[in-house]
Design a protein around this nucleic acid. Structure first.
Lengths: 228, 228
DNA sequence: ACGGAACCGTACCGTACGGTACTCTATGCA
DNA sequence: TGCATAGAGTACCGTACGGTACGGTTCCGT
């Protein structure tokens, strides 16, 4: 699946006209402010100053429009895949902390929460592609970035693991915990949870205690018990 | 919030008549099989062989009926809070593994997923209590059980931590990872993820590397770096 | 200046759902 | 036996939404 990265980037990201982008932007605003109930075709047309007929001409179905919203938002959020690889151990650790902090920031964003709620709410409908779309454009993109980072840490000897999937899952779990689902259910994170940088640092520290090598500059320590 | 446990147990668990319970059961079946679209008052009445008028008389509003479904399911799932506390370190570890395995089993259950989807889908509506209800009756109940376990491990010297909230969050994260949200979005866990017992064991092993004392029979080792 | 395409605003249609009212049956009680 | 209450089944109402059709306006190419 990773060998089709470039093709995905091109074929899956339809470029919308400025007008269409504006419409999608208004639709996202409506969704964030009023939830799925506010996201009627009439309301979108009104908010975007266009006619319903144009909506159907530009995006096809209503479901197609929802899908376009996901694609559009995913394209906007697409993180800068920092081209340069981390230099030393301290740098690598900081990269991980940045990733963790970014992850928390993205997941707790208004638009992300609203879109995830929408997709989850429709996940039961068998004809809905929204869930799969969010998984692909959202979570898998995040996993790609994390996996690249983890692999680089492995190659440089900052990390030790055999199964990158397990390492990623632990990383994600330590960083996010149940915060995401709580927020999806409408829980507002309380004071301590709002300090993403601090929490990211703690989570990464724990991650290093599980998968890190003792030496901050590389050279596996052999102390790691993750394989058996 | 923990000092009101018994009161909560009593006042928040309305006991439904057998007839009402049967209706709620049918409603849950409908929800699982057809999603929220299938959960119309007419469909519920038809499935439960009762009249819509009776539905409104028994449960009030439609939202009240949804809330009743959550309460009913939560009461059914209410875990046996194993009265006896773990004996030695091995026993304690097994208790944690059981908790982790149970957690994964519950979260991946049909009804749990359907109800969480329903509540999340409505979390944007400002007048919906479903999200808060699921948080309280579902997740907080789980956290209570885990917290009791963690505290017992701390008291007996199997674990070391200062902030039980952080310890719980790490535990939850290591066990669940992003599996729950993936499933909520409609992703079917692939082969390896289905083996909950194995995964639970691995997660607990990692948790012990973060919060466990070296000695399996107690006595803090001082090797734990979780506080600062 | 003319013709046409794009498109906004609105009206319209069919349908589906939440909620209510009404009729008819059965069961319990005096 | 007569009566009352509960409840099933159904018809009904208002509303809201997805989707389509139509008139009017603006803008562009010729």
């Amino acid at each position: 699946m990773s060998d089709a990265l470039v093709q995905d980037r091109v074929s899956d990201a339809p470029d919308y006209t400025p007008r269409q982008s504006a419409v999608l932007e208004e639709a996202l605003r409506l969704l964030v402010e009023g939830g799925d109930r506010a996201l009627t075709t009439a309301a979108i047309a009104r908010a975007a100053n266009c006619s319903k007929e144009s909506l159907y001409k530009w995006f096809g179905d209503r479901d197609d429009l929802l899908a376009a919203m996901v694609s559009w938002q995913a394209a906007k959020v697409r993180v800068r895949t920092s081209s340069d690889m981390p230099a030393d151990g301290a740098d690598f650790r900081q990269r991980l902390e940045e990733f963790a902090s970014d992850l928390l920031t993205v997941l707790s964003g208004d638009v992300s929460l609203a879109l995830n709620r929408l997709a989850i709410g429709q996940a039961s409908r068998d004809d809905s592609r929204l869930g799969a779309l969010v998984l692909k454009r959202g979570r898998d993109a995040i996993r790609q970035r994390a996996s690249a980072l983890l692999r680089s840490g492995l190659d440089r000897g900052h990390l030790e693991f055999t199964d990158i999937e397990r390492a990623y899952r632990a990383l994600y779990g330590l960083v996010v915990g149940d915060l995401h689902v709580r927020m999806l259910l409408g829980d507002e994170p309380t004071g301590a949870d709002r300090d993403f940088r601090r929490h990211a640092q703690r989570a990464i520290a724990q991650f290093f205690r599980l998968y890190g090598t003792a030496d901050p500059d590389g050279k596996p320590s052999g102390k790691n018990h993750n394989q058996h």
